[in-house]
């Protein structure tokens, strides 16, 4: 089973852009998207309880691309909830935001974000970013297991 990139963003165009970029690079990942933090938390909760019953080799690794500015539960609150829940605190979370403000970057790292990526306006750059994110957080493990 492929590893999965979950994108949480209220902006449908951004989701399309990321999806397109992933498709263009041809990475072996599945892609899920949620328009809000609550839905992500619900999904993760259901998956985690589910995966306990599955065999280890069938387990899916997740990576979350989390937007900061969202209606209702914003990225920051969602992240802090993820980090408080014991079962999710190993989940890699990459903040994916249009904000380049220092405060946002610093606050995100303080709350336990694994990385902070500024949304590019260029598909080529986006492809590069997705590639390195994948290789850093997901692919590396596969290669290591294969060796």
């Amino acid at each position: 089973m492929n590893d999965c990139i979950i994108m949480v963003d209220d902006d449908p165009e951004d989701i399309i852009l990321v999806k397109t970029a992933l498709k263009r690079i041809g990475l072996p990942v599945s892609f899920l998207s949620f328009p809000s933090g609550e839905l992500l938390l619900d999904f993760i909760a259901s998956q985690m309880s589910h995966s306990h019953r599955e065999a280890v080799e069938n387990r899916v690794d997740y990576l979350v691309l989390l937007d900061l500015n969202m209606p209702k539960m914003g990225g920051a609150l969602c992240l802090s909830k993820l980090r408080k829940a014991q079962s999710f605190n190993q989940l890699p979370v990459v903040i994916f935001s249009t904000s380049d403000a220092h405060e946002d970057v610093e606050r995100s790292y303080e709350m336990g974000a694994n990385s902070y990526v500024y949304k590019p306006d260029n598909i080529k750059e986006l492809e590069k970013i997705m590639n390195s994110i994948y290789h850093f957080w997901l692919f590396k493990k596969h290669r290591w297991l294969q060796i």
């Binding site: 902006d11 165009e13 951004d14 852009l17 397109t20 249009t98 949304k119 590019p120 306006d121 260029n122 598909i123 080529k124 986006l126």
Partner: peptide
């Protein structure tokens, strides 16, 4: 206002 602009730029480039 920067948001939609970014989309215009991104998709135009695409």
């Amino acid at each position: 206002l920067r948001e939609p602009l970014r989309k215009i730029i991104a998709f135009s480039r695409l």
